[in-house]
Amino acid sequence: MGLNPIARLAVLVSTCVVAFRARTPLQAAVLCCAISLMHVAVGAPLRQSSFRRRLRGIFLFAAVLFASQVLLAHGAGPGERVAAGALMALRFLNVVLASHLFVSTTEPQLLAYALMQAGLPYRYGFAFIAAVRFVPYFRDQAQTVRQAQMARGIALDRATPESVFLMARYTFIPVVVSALGRVESLAVSMEGRCFGLYPARTFRRRIPFGRLDALAVAASAAVAVLALAAM
């Protein structure tokens, strides 16, 4: 899919609007099928092992949503409660699958560059990129700290509420201390390359925004408006 990241973002937003405005399980199921077909059409990595692992948790949470509606909703018959549960679970699945489609086909840096070239102040754009870059760093640091805890016998092999609380408490400070050092290096590096010298900046690569992108944004806006008005 060669759309500009902004156009893709517009498609995602309109899809989420439609997902929330769907009133029957059938409508939500049709949308779910459409999103799944889009995954196939653009070659999104549905079979990726990391996504498959997450998918288990996603379906489990959808099942919890369904069960909670069926068991706990008041003032409705069994059929209505099943329908309400199915609708809620499908809404959740639609939002998650649409987001996965967007994330798996859009490089975060391209999205930031596209937004900056569309007028977003570049400080916010690079703050977004820095935040994305920090995610795996935090994950790796937290993993090392947890391993250090385990080596000291602090993290118990069997998780209990107390051990989870203790792990969280003992993980927070080391990770933050490491992150502060990294932030300082990043700040020196950015200033040393004149970040913030001028109110604007140029770009080595332009992220094109063509007619197809304009059409996608317009169509997404129209669908979102229709969904808000009609459903």
């Binding site: 490089e107 975060p108 840096q109 690079f126 990129i129 820095a130 994305v132 870059r133 050092g181 990294r182 290096s185 990043l186 020196v188 590096s189 950015m190 390359r193 004149c194 970040f195 913030g196 010298l197 001028y198 604007a200 900046r201 140029t202 770009f203 080595r204 690569r205």
Partner: peptide, 21 residues
């Protein structure tokens, strides 16, 4: 820790871009 972008060429271009080249 010094990288501000995600790809090699973008990283090397980061400084000249800030200089409005």
């Amino acid at each position: 820790a010094q990288f501000c972008t995600m790809r090699v060429a973008d990283e090397v271009a980061f400084g000249p871009e800030n200089l409005m080249c």
